[in-house]
Structure formats: C-alpha cells, structure tokens
C-alpha cells in the first residue's frame, strides 16, 4: 500500500468520523438537528431556544 492509498484511507476516515462526531455534538448541545435546510425562518436557533423557553 503506497502513500496515496494511506492518505485516501485517512481522509475517508476523517470524513466519516467527523460527520458522526459533528452530529453527536450538535445533539448534545440541543441545537437544531437540521443544519442543511435553507428555509431558516423557523430553524435558526429555534430548537435550542424553544428547549430553554419550555424549561
């Protein structure tokens, strides 16, 4: 296995682990789980703020 293959494995691992970790961190922070929707009027900070309001 040469250097390009090792780099490929490392990059792919970082991508996969990074996406999973980012999702877990967002969930723990109570942030909106949808970071990918562009219709932001109801989404921006709303889930975290509503959690605070309801408490």
């Amino acid at each position: 296995m040469g250097a390009p293959e090792i780099v490929l494995i490392v990059v792919c691992s970082i991508v996969v682990i990074g996406v999973i970790v980012a999702a877990i961190i967002r969930k723990k922070k109570g942030k909106s789980s949808c970071q990918y929707c562009s219709n932001c009027s109801g989404c921006s900070k709303c889930q975290s703020e509503s959690t605070k309001t309801k408490k």
Partner: peptide, 15 residues
C-alpha cells in the same frame, strides 16, 4: 405546504 421545501421548518411551524 412548507413541507415542499423541507419537513423540518414545516414541523416547527405546527407550533
């Protein structure tokens, strides 16, 4: 109708 864009803000709008 908002669900045509994305389900997430549509569900939030049900408040």
């Amino acid at each position: 109708i908002m669900g045509f864009g994305c389900s997430v803000p549509a569900m939030i709008n049900t408040r």
